[in-house]
Design a binder for these strands. Sequence first.
RNA 1: GCGAGAGUGGCGGAAUUGGCAGACGCGCUAGACUUAGGAUCUAGUACCGUACGGUGUAGGGGUUCGAGUCCCCUCUCUCGCACCA
Length: 861
Amino acid sequence: MAEERFDRFDFREAEPKWQQTWEKQQINKVTEDPGKPKYYALAMFPYPSGKLHMGHVRNYSIVDVIARFRRMKGYNVLHPMGYDSFGMPAENAAIQKGISPAVWTKANIAEMTEQLKQLGYSYDWDRAVYTYRPDYYKWTQWIFQQFYKNGLAYKKTAPVNWCPSCATVLANEQVEDGECWRCGSTVTKKDLSQWFFKITQYADELLNDLNQLQGWPERVRLMQENWIGRSEGAQLDFSVPAVGEKLTVYTTRPDTVYGVTFVVVAPEHPLVERLIEGGHIPTATVEQVRAFQEKMKGQNEITRTSTDTEKEGVYLGVDVINPFNGEKAQLWIANYVLMEYGTGAVMGVPAHDQRDFEFAKKIGLPIKVVIQNPEGNLDATTMTEAYTEAGSMANSGPFDGTLNEEGKAKVAAFAAEQGFGQGKVNYRLRDWLVSRQRAWGAPIPMIYCDDCGTVPVPEDQLPVLIPDDLDFSGQGSSPLARHEGFMNCACPQCGKAAKRESDTMDTFVDSSWYFLRYTDAQNGDQVFDKEKAAHWLPVDQYVGGIEHAILHLLYARFFTKGLRDCGYLTIDEPFKALLTQGMVCLDGTKMSKSKGNIVSPEEMIAKYGADACRLFIMFAAPAERDLDWTDAGIEGAYRFVNRFYRMVMSAIPTIHHARSLLPVQTGNMAAMMGALTMGELAEGLAKATTLTEADKDLRRITHATLKKVTIDLYERFAFNTAISGMMELTNAIYAYREKVAEAEQNTLVIAESIQTAVLMIAPFCPHLADELWHKLGFPTSIHLEPWAQYDEAVAQAQTVEIVVQINGKVRDRLDVAAGLNAAETEAAAMASPKVQEMIAGKQVAKVIPVPGKLVNIVVKG
RNA sequence: GCGAGAGUGGCGGAAUUGGCAGACGCGCUAGACUUAGGAUCUAGUACCGUACGGUGUAGGGGUUCGAGUCCCCUCUCUCGCACCA
């Protein structure tokens, strides 16, 4: 017989063995089961860039632990995986290396799937989705058309963000500090006709429903709230006598409208052109205006819109009229007014807006106080900054004396009554620009016909396939636009020659609905079965990086609401709870290829095994926080895996011996193989009458640890403390077996503590756990076992140590019976001779007993 | 500038409800076992002090019998937004 390695968990042999066993037995396969509560655990699916990095390992380990734990707790768990596999890197590989994007993508997916399997994640691979495959993007295109039919997708010409390096447009959310989120190039503006999704239609709902998302981190909700940027105010029409038209301004402070001393429009405001065309602006000024416009164009958006940038502008030499009081106000253009927000025109109230104040001071424009402070001493001539606090309206005609907060609505109502304005809500959120001038994405399924206009590709002709003979030599327009066979088609309505849309969809469209497809991934006839979707959704726990706080999470929320309104979903929100995991760092900075500070999961798995890797990454830091990778740390996890293995292996003969003393019912496979079931153990221990103090202690620690770990995994996602609890239990088991004479050791107590420990470690180290479970004599996988039940009574200590403080300083420690009330606790403390000695001759002012914890005696003198 | 979060031993971190600060792990020290060990097991390890004891959770103040935890001020770091009218 071959020598069995006893001192170390042979992960090289055991991990692949168990992976194959699970796959063969299909233990991770899941279908709807009305007999069990459902649980949908989801990790953000990866882009197949090549190999897994530690960030992936962290993300997927967290979700796997949650999924495995929930399964053991009796839930029917949906735990899928897939690939967000359209996008630029594949196309760049095609351009640079001449490999087809599909081939490149497929190879990467194969490699990453292999690694995910090596890590022992419990995915139902039958549900995998691959966004680059026609069977997926067919439905991406189908959803586009549902949105089109329901008015949620439209085409318009607008100044859009353009990344010159990626040669494509970008959504607002994909511009970070004026730079392309992907390549970092400075983004410019271009006027183009592009497809948009009408996310702004849901602005209010997206904002309000954030309140429902109590399972989300506060800061993500806040980021979305800020991004949506709702503001309440009014639009007011100033008149421009020179051209006989209205100039509408947007303001959140209609209560200050009587304080307007100038009006500013964005340099690119159309009114400016009309004033120039009409000859209303002096020639010398026109030159200044043109120069100013040029200067603004040359400035990138960051500098122009930075708070630090000094305010500057040009007086157009034209006046506008305030409709409230008929007063004239100078019309200016200035750098700090943006065409994109509101109406591109603002009223200048220097007394009550800091920006206007600075501008007025610089230029020398008048300042007029119209909100008086409670002291009543606000004076335009002595002000050093704008007064933006509450007050009562002054110099404001019929509104004088009105509290300004009330005045806001009153002024807006008055404007509406008089026909020169109305209350208005504004959002920072823009519609989502989804067109991309790239080939490796889902083609937008639209056709342009000279006679019929824009015509959707009929549903039975979906998907619009990406040709596999694209020319990526990278010249001029996108490869799709250059592909004659793709571009030329017949109009579905009139049959005449027509052209296809050459743009593809933003890859964020693909990832906005992948979690819906998991509920029915192989459906060839529908996007998904409505009932299956209704069964699994919403996602119970979503886990991913904070970098998606706005982009992906906002888009997915929008898609959910959009598909609901198209009649395909019954939920309002896709992700009930969200956990944003921290980054994996090395030497204090995020691991990244460009910085070269990478620890490769591949090497770590090869050296320490998947279980040790998983354990370390879950132990080293709380899930939300950044984690510093250390070699010493994973060594520690590796040591613990082996220490745990030895603990169980050395106890197995004892446990099997205990089995032999008990009757075996026929057909009990586990019993025949020497195993004691958890039920038998509980029963046996309930009857046991000879438990020693050491036995009771170990049982108490076992049950207390089980309780702690259960709560940590169920309610807190405190994986690090769950693991530390298991380490403590391991230490306690070692100590018991070290300190209690062998003849005195209780086999049932040992078996209970050992088996409980193995069950608890199963979600973290699935291979180790199944190996040990098997060695203990169980014929079936531990991952099909129920989670152990803790006994509250056993977990409770019979005696507790209480601390006796005198004036807040610890002076004595007493062992007292558990469950004493306040008076009994106090009496126990006062009975201590040591305490009596220390308070002798002093006046006891007060005694504060805290049952089960401490007693504080306050003495004087 | 605004908003959010964080600051605890040599290091990662724990303290869940205001109640023994430093669990657990790393590192380090010593011992045992060993031909050997960078394996394993055992013990120790916040700081000052020989000790009795004292001091300690970024700094300062406050509430309380009692504060890492609550309140106020200050500092540092991280993230998000950044002239949004």
